[in-house]
């Protein structure tokens, strides 16, 4: 069994946001009007977080793409009353829309605020539903959703591998964000495979995890940018 994880090299990330756009297209994330967005009523599965801290003369910048970190010890899975969100066999935190009752307990439990609740019916202006990815459902109002590491791609890749009578190979399963990144800043793979790039890079001296002190053990590892900030 694999244990899927990701490394994001913030030294290479240009902050273009292609990852977020790819995620929206791949996962049929609906558009939202400004008022809804401002009220915090809808979030993208993958947001580009940018924070400027400190004072002008030594302003510190933190900018990173933030998606569900698929924690090994995920707080959201512990509070779901119906088992709609849980850690699956390969370490991904799954979100099963049909079980979700929309209580939003998990959304509140997540310390990274990466889960989003569908307050509204999704709006797909006429004709735009043609670009919906047929491999992913279109969620109704009333359920929570979040990054799934494009698990549907794993479903298809695994099916193909079994059909061809072989194991899943490296590169068979890649989330949309990792695939699209024009800077090549995102690496995805099996953390339990010592030969995989993701497991090697996650041990890099620049590696850090968000809010590590909470003990969530996220499986998305960030690599601090090189060099000093002036």
């Amino acid at each position: 069994m694999s244990r899927w994880g990701m490394v994001v090299d913030l030294g290479a990330c240009t902050g273009c946001g292609a990852c977020g756009v790819a995620c929206r297209q791949e996962n049929n994330v609906p558009d939202v009007d400004e008022r809804t967005w401002r009220n915090g009523r809808q979030r993208d599965w993958l947001q580009l977080v940018t924070k400027v801290e400190g004072r002008y003369h030594d302003a510190q910048v933190e900018s990173y793409p933030l998606m569900c970190l698929h924690c090994d010890d995920a707080p959201c899975t512990k509070v779901c009353p119906v088992g709609a969100t849980y850690s699956d066999e390969e370490g991904l935190v799954a979100q099963i829309y049909d079980r979700c009752i929309g209580c939003r307990y998990c959304t509140n439990a997540c310390p990274y605020s990466v889960k989003t609740f569908n307050w509204l019916d999704p709006v797909w202006p006429q004709g735009t539903e043609r670009r919906q990815n047929p491999d992913v459902s279109v969620r109704p109002r009333g359920v929570v959703e979040k990054c799934t590491m494009c698990h549907h791609r794993h479903q298809k890749a695994d099916d193909r591998a079994r059909f061809e009578g072989r194991e899943l190979r490296h590169g068979d399963y890649t989330p949309a964000c990792v695939e699209i990144c024009p800077a090549g800043a995102m690496i995805f793979g099996d953390l339990d495979d010592p030969e995989s790039e993701v497991s090697k890079r996650s041990e890099d001296k620049r590696a850090y995890r968000l809010m590590e002190e909470l003990g969530t053990e996220p499986k998305v590892v960030f690599l601090r940018p090189h060099g000093k900030r002036s």
Binding site: G17, A18, V21, A22, Q126, T128, R131, P182
Partner: peptide, 16 residues
Amino acid sequence: GVCPRGLSEVAAFYEP
């Protein structure tokens, strides 16, 4: 790799 603008051409294709 593809930039965000390029990827959005998928949506532009079906622009209502």
